[in-house]
Design a protein around this nucleic acid. Structure first.
Length: 226
DNA sequence: AAGGCTGGCAACCGCTCCAAT
DNA sequence: AATTGGAGCGGTTGCCAGCCT
């Protein structure tokens, strides 16, 4: 059992890639393509294992990589997908052209996980997070009844609603023992949660997107809107 | 100014999957 | 059906820049 290492550990470079190594790898792949990763370093004149070359190419050198920090929309999408797929980063990354599984995994571990912890959400089970999702879905005209939520649920919803309000320009009314959930609008008037939600368009665009991934332009458009 | 601490990220490791034989 | 080996995946580690005291 167990496999032989993909390379002999002696005589091979490890650690951060140099500009020269990057250049060699990129030039080789762009002109020859990838047949077998194991042969790439030898043919490209690199003292790296094939596995290391593959990782470097996928995570850093691919021409189609999207640079820059993940957007709010992408972050929300990751939360959605993670609640459905768990830690299957490659599956999640497949929904984000130009993003890598490593990038998304790192982003999750360093930022989103903490963000959800601050919100009191269980990032593993997504227990309150489910309400977060329901809440967002409801903005698209879903069916959740905030009135029936537990007190704890209401509090979670309140916190999470506050997070969302920047995008929708309203926040939930402060206070713990709420009846029907109230929403405080940007102009400081209040309205009921369900009344406000009924004004939302009926299509559940978020769910539709998960079920049938949209092209990257979808996010570009979102970015332009903000 | 210097040392310690922390967060973010690139890269590695070990494992599984799966196609070829 | 069993074996082999390359590719891919997810967890973990270690480096480094920026921040804090």
């Amino acid at each position: 059992m167990g496999r032989q290492p993909c390379f002999e550990k002696s005589g091979l470079n490890r650690g951060p890639w140099t500009i020269e190594e990057d250049h060699k790898l990129m030039t080789f792949i762009l002109s020859n393509g990838i047949q077998c990763w194991r042969t790439v370093p030898k043919l490209a004149g690199l003292h790296r294992c094939g596995k290391s070359c593959r990782l470097r190419w996928i995570n850093s050198l691919r021409p189609d990589l999207k640079r820059g920090a993940l957007t709010e929309a992408e972050e929300e999408m990751i939360i959605q997908l993670h609640s459905r797929l768990g830690n299957r980063w490659s599956k999640i990354a497949a929904h984000f052209p130009g993003r890598t599984d490593n990038e998304i995994k790192n982003h999750w571990n360093t930022r989103i996980k903490k963000k959800l912890q601050v919100l009191g959400s269980n990032h593993t089970s997504h227990t309150p997070l489910q309400q977060y999702e329901d809440c967002k879905v409801k903005k698209g005209g879903g069916t959740m009844k905030p009135e029936s939520a537990t007190e704890q649920g209401e509090i979670e919803l309140e916190l999470q609603g506050t997070q969302i309000d920047e995008r929708f320009n309203y926040g939930f009314h402060e206070g713990r023992n709420m009846g029907p959930l109230e929403i405080q609008k940007a102009d400081h008037t209040t309205t009921s949660f369900s009344e406000e939600m009924d004004k939302r368009p009926p299509e559940d665009f978020l769910q539709q997107w998960i079920d049938s991934p949209l092209p990257w332009e979808f996010f570009s458009n979102l970015k332009e809107d903000t």
